[in-house]
Design a protein around this nucleic acid. Structure first.
Lengths: 333, 333
DNA sequence: TTCTGGTTTGCAATCGATTACAGCCTAAGA
DNA sequence: TCTTAGGCTGTAATCGATTGCAAACCAGAA
């Protein structure tokens, strides 16, 4: 069923049908009613592909996340989808699985599908493809992780502050042997968190030791491995700051396996307040971020750009320390 | 940058460019190389919209989920996306928020966008729109919840068995006052779970009482409300079977607020083994489902259909009872 | 040289909606 | 009665890639 079929049935031209639907005031009331009636009765469904080709606009926004199962990202996706839908956009979703290669494939695909805009949680892709977006003037919003591209809308947490809050909390409790399980060095948010961690230790006159600095890839398994290495140390840390929730899940696994008591033998601070963090035993002290708000804001920035906004904005959200029961003063030796 | 631009540059026709890319063996080696070289150098990106219009195929699969933040569905989405990607498809995602109206809007949208196929976790939409899909012979896979449409591929859990396992477990522990927080009556999976629950009680000669049967909408808040009602009863239940993980989170909230000790004062069995269920305090006894496998299977069935498979399949997955520490024999009075 | 068969290429229609432009009609004004 | 303006509608081009058909070309056989 196409306009041309309807037009034949109605003895009008496709132009009239099109106008009756998209600019009703330009067609005579009588004709308009006739057209609309037939459209309704026939259950006609517009072909958005054809329309997109002609109008050069897909009203689709692409989103690349690093792991849709991470509650942080699923909350982002949910928020983005909400904003998109209420503005007549749809969402094409791609998973990068924390791998720059996958991200590049995804970018390629989204460009080919002519997305109107892109929300992008970098897994470390090469900048060239992103430059293509810019050349095609497809607006881009960096979310959570900065791609490194200049003049791009950005929504991030103040990661430095977040890490500082966590670290400060541990230091204030009296911990001296403080470890970090950081994210990969090539991701901006991981770097900034590590930075905040180190600065805070330094300002407390604690030397951040190399053996207490572990790097994971933001995924569960790497958190588990890192925790195992830390716990196997001759003098293991008395506190660990784990830089994201997935790695925290992994770390917890290792910790339980060794039957280490939290917080008696080990204090833990996590990053990002996934639901399970508060239900966990013990409930975890974490740095929480306003996830939904960040997703919403990213979508809004994007829509703003699509509606002609010129300037690139950088929005920084504030983290909050949520103290629960996974942190306590260190055991006296 | 279009084929026509490239063609001009190369002094060939657009037909040749097209063929060099999609059926290289049909063009002379020399020309082919010339074309490919220019394509590479110019960074040409195919316009998938135009191609889709011409070929009448978008290679996009739509997915409607009821709540992307529910880890059950995000695991599904992840699995579907994986299978899709490795087969050259993309995924258009829509959120129904457990509301049939939203689902209908989503269906409309996906039809207009000419998705090649649809994976569908019903929130109870009207069947008419789904019939349109069938009329357009767009393959459809019902996942987790049956839409009620005939002759449709289906991937479900054996919900009856799942509920039976849970209930049996409680009964075997000696519980007589067993309550259920069920999902909404119009969803197939909720109904079947309720059914399994009732049948099991009956076979144990326990009368399932109306006051012990609560209905929620599969979302957190409703679980909380339902739990509150149950706990406020003159003789509250000694065990509750909560029919999905979101409502369980809500129920737990209410239970903690009342400082009820689990499992001493109340046994709990959940449905679907979200990550937090095992980290929870106490770790929850749940009926687990092979979520990823279900998502994967759904995607595979869909792709099968897209490749010409004729018969509609119904795949039933087996649930498993995972006994943790939220269940125990009832207190003796 | 002419013909045959095969390879390579181009022409032009096509997918379905949108829209600039032009033409038609009607009614009001001269 | 003749203009003219404005409202309504239709014609046809367009978006960018694909593809059936036909033409052009070439090598080898007669």
């Amino acid at each position: 069923m196409t306009f041309s079929d309807l037009a034949k049935q109605l003895n009008v031209s496709t132009a009239t049908v099109s106008r009756a639907l998209s600019r009703p005031e330009t067609v005579a009331p009588a004709t308009r009613e006739r057209v609309l009636e037939v459209v309704r009765r026939s259950g006609y469904q517009m072909n958005a592909i054809a329309r997109s080709l002609r109008t050069q606009s897909t009203r689709t926004i692409g989103i690349i996340v690093s792991d849709i199962r991470n509650p942080f990202f699923s909350a982002i996706v949910k928020a983005v989808e909400d904003v998109a839908r209420t503005n007549g956009y749809s969402v094409l979703i791609c998973n990068a699985d924390e791998d720059g290669r996958n991200e590049e494939v995804a970018l390629q695909l989204l460009i080919e599908r002519q997305v109107s805009g892109l929300i992008h949680c970098s897994a470390g892709a090469n900048l060239n493809l992103l430059r293509i977006l810019q050349k095609k003037s497809i607006p881009l919003v960096d979310l959570d992780r900065q791609s490194g591209l200049e003049n791009v809308d950005t929504v991030v947490l103040d990661n430095q502050l977040g890490a500082a809050l966590a670290t400060r909390h541990l230091v204030d409790l009296g911990h001296k042997r403080v470890a970090i399980i950081s994210g990969p060095k090539h991701l901006s948010n991981a770097r900034t968190r590590l930075d905040g961690f180190r600065k805070t230790l330094r300002s407390a006159h604690i030397i951040s030791q190399k053996k207490y600095t572990e790097f994971g890839d933001f995924r569960e398994q790497s958190g588990r491995d890192a925790a195992e290495r830390l716990l196997a140390l001759p003098t293991p840390p008395s506190a660990i700051f784990v830089a994201n929730n997935e790695m925290m899940a992994g770390a917890l696994f290792a910790i339980r396996q060794r039957r280490i008591k939290v917080p008696r033998d080990l204090s833990l601070v996590g990053f990002d307040d996934a639901r399970w963090a508060q239900y966990s035993d013990p409930p975890l002290t974490v740095v929480s971020q306003p996830t939904e708000a960040m997703g919403k804001k990213a979508a809004e920035l994007l829509l703003g750009r699509l509606q002609g906004e010129k300037l690139a904005n950088t929005i920084v959200f504030e983290p909050q320390l949520v103290v629960r029961r996974s942190t306590a003063p260190p055991k006296r030796k």
